[in-house]
Simulated assay, not measured.
Amino acid sequence: MEPPASPGIPMRSFSGSTYRFDPGALCLELLTTGGPGEFRRFEVLHAPDDLVAWAERSRLTPTPALRVAEAEVADARRLRDALFRVTTARALDEPAPSEDVAVLNEAAARPPLTPVIGPDGARGWAGTADGTRLLATVAHDAVELLTGPYAHRIRMCAADNCALLYVDTSRPGRRRWCSMEHCGNRHKVRTLRARRSAEG
Rank of each mutant, 00 (worst) to 15 (best):
P4S: 13
A5T: 05
S6P: 09
G8T: 03
I9S: 01
M11V: 09
S13G: 10
G16Y: 11
Y19A: 07
Y19Q: 13
Y19D: 07
R20Q: 01
R20S: 00
F21A: 04
F21V: 07
F21T: 05
A25N: 10
A25H: 06
C27H: 01
L30C: 00
L31M: 07
G34S: 07
P36Y: 01
E38Y: 15
F39D: 15
R40Q: 14
R41P: 07
V44F: 08
L45E: 03
D50F: 02
V52Y: 06
A55L: 07
R59I: 14
T61W: 12
T61C: 11
T61V: 15
P64H: 00
A65G: 08
R67D: 08
R67K: 12
E70V: 11
A71H: 08
E72P: 03
V73C: 03
A74Q: 02
A76C: 08
R77S: 05
F84S: 04
R85D: 04
T87I: 05
T88P: 00
R90D: 10
L92D: 10
D93P: 09
E94L: 14
E94D: 13
E94C: 10
A96K: 08
V101D: 11
A102Y: 14
V103L: 15
V103I: 13
L104F: 10
L104A: 03
N105H: 08
E106C: 07
E106P: 02
A107I: 09
A108E: 06
A109L: 14
A109P: 12
P111A: 09
P112Y: 01
P112C: 03
P112M: 03
T114C: 08
V116L: 06
V116Y: 01
V116T: 07
I117S: 11
I117L: 12
G118F: 05
T128L: 11
G131S: 05
A136I: 07
V138D: 03
A139G: 04
D141E: 00
L145Y: 04
Y150N: 13
Y150P: 05
A151F: 05
H152I: 09
I154A: 05
R155K: 06
D160N: 14
D160H: 14
N161W: 15
N161Y: 12
V167D: 02
T169H: 15
R171K: 12
R171S: 10
G173A: 00
G173E: 03
R174K: 12
S179H: 10
E181F: 01
R186A: 13
T191I: 13
L192F: 11
R193K: 09
R193M: 11
R193A: 08
A194C: 10
R195A: 07
A198R: 08
A198E: 10
G200C: 10
G200M: 13
